[in-house]
Amino acid sequence: MFAPVMIIIPFYILVKQLGIVNTRLALVLSYTTFCLPFCLWLLRAFFESIPLELEEAAMVDGAGRARAVWHVVLPLALPGLIAAAIFTFILAYNDFLFALVLITSEELKTLPVGVNDLFNATIVDWGMIMAAGVMITLPAVLFFAGVQRYLVQGWGAGGVKG
């Protein structure tokens, strides 16, 4: 609920203290943190919808708790996991601000920051920018196309449960 722009400075200070400015780890941590609340909320609804008896049945059959979760619960909750994955993917993939502030080297720059650079050239080459736009969008669209049928189930169940 805190707009990311408002916590970027304290966040930067924190990342600086951890000594991980300009690393992928810093970005991984920040996006994970931002997506966690929504994902927890969504996944909880999914796990709740899986009957406890299924898990217990597996355990009666001799499986340990871990095995029961791995073989029974997780596969059933997969649509929810996919939905959470998509949400997280889109957020991290599209983020501009954190990538701008936390990353200082060319090699680690993310795509939105790179596109933004195109606007700084002497001549703004719209053809180039649009081409970059398409190129950026493609992986996201492909990812999305592959998993969209899970998404429809995933978000719905989460949404209904509130």
């Binding site: 000594g19 991980i20 690393t23 780890l25 991984v28 791995w70 596969p75 997969l78 996991l81 994955a85």
Partner: peptide
Amino acid sequence: TVSRRDFLKTTSLTAGATLLAGAPAAL
């Protein structure tokens, strides 16, 4: 089911590897 499990395994492995790959750069 098997393929889903593989999916989970691959995903978690990839995620872990990414995190680890970031660590040396940090240190």
